[in-house]
Amino acid sequence: MIPDQLKTALAEHIAASITPREAAVTVMKELQAHYGWLTDEAVAEAAQLLGISPLQVEELATFYEMIYRRPVGKRVVHVCDSISCWAMGGESLLGQLAARLGIPVGGTDPEGMFTLLPCCCLGNCGDAPTMMVGDNLYGRLTLETALGVLEQERESAKM
């Protein structure tokens, strides 16, 4: 269940939209921010708020890569696999990070700290290879600096 405050805020947002559906992605994202991922409960809640069926929410949720219908770690790590990063060793960075975290690309580590995802593109092409953890962007990475970043993020997630 989402707190009443969030529910009211979302209802207001929907009311201010041109059609309720216009608010669908925002509502899903807010619910996701609350639960950590878009749970089945969240799908039902979104459907109710938007006045559409859960299936219609599902249909939207599965279209967008940034809506997670499975649990993700506390920090989602997006490693850029776009052309500029790829030309600068992004692919091998992604592979090595997966090996170090002991998870496949797309997986989440057993502690539930990191989910590793490829992403195309982060628009930081001048500073390739790049990754984004949460809203923080890191450029010109090597395996060492990337692992350092993950350590930092791990610490900050604990706080």
């Binding site: 059609t19 309720p20 559906r21 216009e22 992605v25 249909e59 939207l60 279209f63 967008y64 890569e65």
Partner: peptide
């Protein structure tokens, strides 16, 4: 301001419009 949610095809104008309307961005 409308935020995307990670779909390249939404840059195409008719897909973008569908996405703003809250449909699948196709």
């Amino acid at each position: 301001v409308k935020l995307g949610a990670g779909a390249f095809v939404c840059g195409e104008e008719t897909a973008l419009i569908a996405s703003i309307e809250g449909e699948r961005g196709m």
